[in-house]
Write a protein that binds this DNA or RNA. Structure first.
Length: 228
DNA sequence: TACCAGGAGAAAA
DNA sequence: TTTTCTCATGGT
């Protein structure tokens, strides 16, 4: 068992299955990936709830909706003007691809690499958002790299350097994918567990060398000694 | 009050 | 090419 598999086993044992993504449909996942950009999930939930109340969680509804109304609905998620444009772009894309009624069918329209390229070409969809859609909405085996992933694996010494957010995304992703079986279910659970771990707050003696309060690194952002 | 939260794109250096 | 700025709300 390599280091990446050991970390996964550790996280799964500690936190259990996370059952991500928290959504009722693949399209809701796609909407959520945009709404959660640089935003706490609790705020996204408010926006999703408003969209559901308005029966707007469909490609057609988002395409047809007035921009000002859409912006008002997603206001709790922040960046509402930006995200309004991004949701409109996504809905227009899915409609153009002929999958407005079943967005999950997008997965049958090309290889993983082709679909990723097409999503990245859309304004407002970067690597993390595209990969979240591919993994959590389309069940395709691609590993999502986010801030939590970088921080945890840098602290564990499994990443060479704490690379800036705008660089080395694909290099880090490929490092994970090379070390693990190409399994969407595994990638799904692994990333969700990393997020679950990041949200935990250390309650023991953080900052003390050798602190055993955390199994991997200190979620309190302090310098507990990483251990397996 | 200041900072952070499941980023991305444009502008500036 | 790399770094900085902008977008914005809600919780702590």
């Amino acid at each position: 068992m390599n280091a990446y598999e050991q970390v996964y086993a550790h996280l799964l044992a500690q936190y259990g299955p996370q059952h991500w993504w928290p959504a009722d449909s693949p399209f809701e996942v796609m909407v959520g990936t945009i709404l959660t950009q640089n935003t706490a999930w609790t705020n996204v939930e408010r926006a999703i709830a408003a969209l559901r109340q308005r029966q707007a969680l469909s490609v057609a509804a988002l395409r047809d909706m007035d921009e000002s109304e859409l912006a008002a609905l997603i206001r709790p998620a922040g960046y509402f003007n930006q995200k309004t444009r991004r949701l409109k772009t996504l809905a227009t894309f899915l409609h153009a691809r002929g999958v407005a009624d079943a967005p999950e069918q997008l997965r049958n329209q090309g290889t993983l690499a082709e679909l990723r390229r097409d999503l990245l070409a859309l304004n407002g969809i970067g690597p993390e958002t595209a990969d979240s859609m591919l993994l959590y909405a389309l069940d395709l085996p691609i590993f999502v790299i986010d801030t939590y992933t970088r921080r945890l694996f840098y602290r564990l010494g499994l990443l060479q350097a704490d690379a800036p957010k705008n660089t080395a995304y694909d290099a880090i992703r490929q490092q994970f994918e090379a070390a693990l079986p190409q399994d969407a279910v595994l990638f799904n659970e692994y990333h969700a567990l990393i997020v679950a771990h990041a949200k935990v707050r250390c309650k023991k003696q953080p900052g003390v060398p050798g602190c055993s309060g955390c199994p991997l690194d200190c979620p309190a952002r302090l310098q507990c000694t990483p251990s397996f």
